[in-house]
Computed example of a mutant assay.
Amino acid sequence: LVGGASRCKGTLEVNQGEWRPVDYHGWNLKAAADSIRLVGGSGLCSGRLEVRSNQSNQWSSVCEEDFDQQDAEVVCRELGCGAPSVLRGALYGEVEAPMWTKGFQCGGHESALLDCRSSGSERNTCSPGKAVGLTCSEPVRLVGGASRCEGTLEVNQGEWRPVDGFMWNLKEADVLCRHLDCGSAVSIRDREESSERSVWRIHSDCLQSGSAVSECLSSDNSSSILDLT
């Protein structure tokens, strides 16, 4: 969802080779409802995986025996997060029934988990501690530098945009470097471009409180771009 005041408001776009808006005709509130979510984690990109059935409109957990790395890649992509970094049962607490009855057989390229093929056999139970717990990487990257830990900071929340560079310090930058598995920040630079463009502003107090990057963003226009090492 892009162009709105938060990640849950805006124009609906889907990426199948390129980002395009979705035609409105024939839509209703049921069709617009989320089909997957991660619950019990620190934000959008971590938690216990739950899937909503189109028939019953009920949320169900997924057994880790019916889920693999390729399935996790699809989930993280559908949620707008980075690649999966942790996949382990009971990571985000135990769960009672219901369980999702069929295993997923994703190729890893699908845009949505429910687009994946399902196994023919059905499962009615799952061993304790075996519900899928998943952590996706934050949708954060550094581009244009000599290594993956150097360059212009960009965040993806519907689209990749640079981050406003105004008033950053090394303490705040350290949090982003940890998300990138790059250690501590060595240097930051507020680079002025010739004209304003769409950027993300990251709210420092939100970020340093431990919230996910995606929960600390607001949309803005600026010519001040953050470069980070």
Rank of each mutant, 00 (worst) to 15 (best):
G145N: 04
S60K: 12
R37H: 13
T125K: 14
E172F: 12
L44E: 13
S224T: 08
S211R: 15
S6Y: 15
A212D: 11
P162M: 01
F67N: 08
G40Y: 12
T229G: 02
F67M: 00
H109C: 01
T101N: 14
V51F: 15
I202F: 03
R197M: 12
W19R: 08
L207M: 08
H109T: 03
G10V: 13
N57W: 14
W168R: 04
L134R: 13
S42P: 07
G47F: 12
L226W: 14
C136H: 01
R191P: 06
R48G: 08
S118N: 00
S35D: 02
L79Y: 05
A33Q: 14
L79V: 05
A173L: 01
L134A: 00
G3P: 12
R7E: 03
D71V: 01
A32K: 11
G80L: 04
Y92S: 13
E96P: 08
S42F: 14
A97N: 01
G93H: 14
R197I: 15
G120F: 11
C182L: 07
E138A: 06
T11Q: 09
D181I: 12
R197G: 15
N156S: 06
W200D: 02
D181G: 00
R123Y: 12
P84L: 08
G158T: 09
S137Q: 11
V163T: 14
F104H: 09
L170V: 13
